[in-house]
């Protein structure tokens, strides 16, 4: 067996994957754009029912976690395994906090009967139905990505401890960080579209 250790190739593969992810989210943004153009008043009304403070707080959390992910890559390249691990751990922790906040936000909405399929939901204006469906699907799929990212970081953390990921072999961490930054970018667009535009 020839060992393939082409880090640039591995990174290229990751970027290509992230571009497919952008198009995956792009399909939802297209639906959002079309339905927003059609039902702008309903979208404004529904958007103001979301909690801006929570949205902003979660944005800060995710941006900070992106920062710590970038920090851990810089650290591991220097061979500073301990501080790289700490940054990684903080990143995963911030991801978990993001999910907990998201969970409480969803619970509150569902508690008010706002979820696809409920009797209350089906009586809402058409534009509002579509807005909240988009809200649940977009944030849901995004949250799934956050969850996967957290699991990946846990695995990388373990690999740093076992010595698989180290100062001269960090491509796995680099690719995991790239993925996490993408998750951050997706949220950077979701936040104004869902919480801010009225």
């Amino acid at each position: 067996m020839v060992k393939h250790t082409d880090d640039v190739g591995a990174k290229m593969g990751m970027w290509l994957f992230l571009f497919t992810e952008m198009l995956f989210f792009g399909g939802m943004f297209l639906l959002y754009a079309v339905y927003r153009a059609h039902y702008s008043a309903d979208f404004s009304g529904a958007s103001s029912e979301l909690n801006r403070v929570i949205g902003t707080f979660n944005t800060v959390i995710l941006i900070t976690s992106s920062f710590t992910a970038a920090l851990s890559l810089s650290e591991i390249k220097k061979g500073a395994l301990r501080s790289a691990s700490v940054s990684l751990g903080i990143t995963a922790l911030l991801g978990i906090i993001f999910l907990i906040i998201k969970y409480t936000e969803w619970s509150a909405k569902i508690g008010h009967g706002i979820y696809p399929g409920s009797a209350y939901f089906n009586d809402l204006a058409h534009g509002k139905v579509l807005f909240f469906s988009l809200y649940f699907v977009m944030t849901g799929i995004h949250a799934l990505h956050v969850l996967i990212g957290i699991v990946v970081f846990m695995v990388i953390l373990f690999m740093v401890h076992s010595g698989t990921v180290r100062g001269n072999n960090f491509i796995k961490l680099e690719n995991a960080a790239l993925y996490w930054h993408f998750v951050d970018i997706a949220w950077i667009y979701l936040f104004p579209l869902l919480y801010l535009l009225r």
Partner: peptide, 28 residues
């Protein structure tokens, strides 16, 4: 990726009634 999200939305539509493609809920 575009078909992936489209089919996923169709599945969610069938499972939860999200309304994206259902004219009776305003979808197109």
């Amino acid at each position: 990726p575009v078909i992936a999200i489209t089919l996923l939305l169709l599945i969610l539509e069938r499972a939860f009634g999200t309304g994206f493609f259902d004219p009776s809920k305003g979808g197109d």
